[in-house]
Simulated assay, not measured.
Amino acid sequence: MTGDDRTEPRAHCLAGPDGHLAFTLAAPLPDPRAQLLLRRRTGTGSPDTERRLLALETGTEGETQAVLDRLPPLAEGRWDLYLLRAPDAEPERLRTGLRDLRALVDGHLRDRTSPVAARIPYPTKDGYLALRTWLRTAHAEAGRIEVGDRSTTVHARLHGTRLADGAVVRLRPRGSGGDGEQSAPVDAGADGRDFRLTVDHRALATGTSAGGGFWDVFVHPAADAPPVRVARLLDDVEQRKGSFVYPSARTDGTEVRAYYTVDNDLSFQVRAAG
């Protein structure tokens, strides 16, 4: 295929309320053995082993459709979509058509069991259709973030587990940007799932190296429980980093700011003011 998007196959995507994704090609395919290929993106030089094949079927109005069911879940990562016109045909990348993701908008309002899976269709920078997927044993969904002069409060809800005695939030320095972990109090709700965490700006700044640093946020649901990453995954936003921007708070010559990483995980940045 050429790089001209007028000659490349295009797929529309519809997110269903039960968690399935339906992909529709406008033109019928002459070979009934045609399939849709999902291939997980790997690092340079890594073997291409993660694949999922979906049958393509002709609908009542001549359209060609494939359905990705909610189960089994896809491994966490980024998946590119291809058309296989025949079993031995060369895979063709699919251009992005219309994406109806309204069923995903309120996904954070629905409780999830373990493992917690999420997937969001999105267009790549060059206009191809891809999926961003997450698959975690448990997940803490970040909600409202309130930035004050002295602290930042994050409202969150646990999925796949509940809070118990000894629950604690820990902030881990990334690389050499800080001196050991820091703890933050957990204000738990009555159902053991809703909670608030409060990050003290001065304490975080004091524990950060002179050149600044980044801190990743985890909650331990119980004293002996493994850490659960705090993130925002359960809606229709594939990458929040550039669109959800929170103000910085100044303390002792530094700026402390909550932000989302490229993977939608919640972190804090500490840097010199100005």
Rank of each mutant, 00 (worst) to 15 (best):
residue 168 V to H: 02
residue 83 L to Y: 04
residue 107 G to L: 08
residue 185 P to S: 05
residue 179 D to N: 12
residue 258 A to M: 02
residue 234 L to N: 02
residue 253 G to M: 10
residue 14 L to M: 09
residue 96 T to M: 10
residue 51 R to T: 12
residue 158 L to A: 03
residue 25 L to G: 01
residue 14 L to C: 02
residue 265 D to H: 02
residue 154 V to F: 02
residue 263 D to T: 03
residue 203 A to N: 05
residue 224 D to S: 11
residue 38 L to R: 06
residue 225 A to I: 10
residue 23 F to D: 01
residue 248 S to M: 09
residue 77 G to A: 07
residue 75 A to M: 07
residue 154 V to K: 01
residue 122 Y to K: 05
residue 208 T to D: 11
residue 239 Q to M: 03
residue 170 R to Q: 13
residue 132 R to L: 09
residue 40 R to Y: 06
residue 107 G to C: 09
residue 118 A to G: 12
residue 73 P to T: 10
residue 108 H to R: 15
residue 104 L to Q: 07
residue 85 R to E: 14
residue 257 R to N: 09
residue 202 R to H: 05
residue 116 V to M: 10
residue 246 Y to Q: 09
residue 16 G to D: 08
residue 86 A to E: 12
residue 86 A to M: 07
residue 205 A to G: 15
residue 138 A to D: 00
residue 240 R to K: 04
residue 135 L to C: 06
residue 177 G to Q: 03
residue 157 R to Q: 09
residue 114 S to I: 15
residue 42 T to M: 14
residue 5 D to A: 13
residue 198 T to M: 11
residue 247 P to H: 05
residue 48 D to H: 13
residue 126 D to L: 11
residue 269 Q to R: 14
residue 129 L to V: 00
residue 142 A to D: 04
residue 69 D to C: 05
residue 228 V to Q: 08
residue 113 T to H: 13
residue 230 V to L: 15
residue 178 G to Q: 04
residue 185 P to Y: 05
residue 195 F to W: 05
residue 29 L to P: 03
residue 198 T to W: 10
residue 162 R to H: 04
residue 134 W to V: 04
residue 41 R to Y: 08
residue 218 F to W: 13
residue 64 T to I: 08
residue 162 R to Y: 04
residue 255 E to Y: 06
residue 138 A to E: 05
residue 162 R to A: 01
residue 25 L to T: 02
residue 253 G to C: 11
residue 5 D to E: 12
residue 181 E to D: 15
residue 194 D to N: 10
residue 207 G to V: 00
residue 110 R to D: 15
residue 148 G to Y: 02
residue 216 D to R: 11
residue 267 S to C: 08
residue 149 D to P: 14
residue 62 G to M: 15
residue 26 A to R: 14
residue 186 V to T: 10
residue 104 L to H: 05
residue 41 R to M: 14
residue 272 A to Q: 14
residue 10 R to K: 11
residue 258 A to Y: 00
residue 257 R to V: 13
residue 125 K to V: 13
residue 124 T to V: 09
residue 184 A to I: 02
residue 201 H to R: 03
residue 89 A to H: 06
residue 78 R to E: 15
residue 10 R to Y: 00
residue 160 G to P: 13
residue 91 P to W: 04
residue 194 D to E: 14
residue 131 L to M: 07
residue 227 P to L: 11
residue 92 E to Q: 14
residue 159 H to C: 01
residue 67 V to A: 00
residue 202 R to S: 12
residue 257 R to C: 15
residue 70 R to T: 12
residue 123 P to Y: 06
residue 94 L to Q: 07
residue 177 G to C: 03
residue 229 R to N: 09
residue 227 P to H: 08
residue 206 T to N: 12
residue 115 P to Q: 06
residue 199 V to W: 07
residue 221 P to F: 03
residue 156 A to L: 04
residue 199 V to S: 10
residue 110 R to W: 14
residue 205 A to K: 00
residue 203 A to K: 09
residue 193 R to V: 05
residue 206 T to Q: 15
residue 25 L to I: 06
residue 256 V to M: 03
residue 131 L to R: 04
residue 121 P to M: 09
residue 92 E to N: 05
residue 98 L to M: 11
residue 244 F to T: 02
residue 146 E to H: 09
residue 100 D to V: 12
residue 27 A to I: 01
residue 52 R to T: 08
residue 184 A to Y: 00
residue 58 T to A: 13
residue 94 L to S: 05
residue 129 L to F: 01
residue 120 I to Y: 03
residue 85 R to D: 12
